[in-house]
Amino acid sequence: MSAERTRQVEAIAHGTVIDHLPPEHTLKAATVLALPDDQIFIGMNFISKKGVAKGVIKIAGRELNQMSLSQLALMAPEATINIIRDYKVVSKQLISIPKSFDNIAKCSNPNCITNFQNCITKFEVIEKKPLVVRCFHCERSFQGDSLHLR
């Protein structure tokens, strides 16, 4: 890395950096992933090495749990997750898309039974790229990033 490079978002000693987020989903992702006491840094519309606009979220002091990873997979399946320890990237991984998303999103079909009853939602992945999911209950298909998280 070039010594002259200016850091655009504060470095974190330990924690998680979520990179290559679609800019339009970055704020939403930060809102969903943040816990009340989290220290979070957000960058939007940075230009990646490939010249594409992206968002970055840095969460200090912790790694994401399985629930957060699933939420992220639904919102931004192309994002990458870097684990930081002592200011160094110790692991860098792509998000893995699960076979189904259980109880993390609300069905966008206003007539779906899950919007009327207290029950667990489930979306089966029918296409990974672009991410398309189908509601297990009402059988409607949706783009992954169009769903509202619960």
């Binding site: 079909n109 007539n111 029950c119 297990f136 009402c138």
Partner: peptide, 13 residues
């Protein structure tokens, strides 16, 4: 029969 989509699937659970 139910007016909401997916009601029968929920019933099976």
């Amino acid at each position: 029969r139910h007016p909401h989509d997916g009601a029968a699937r929920l019933a099976t659970e």
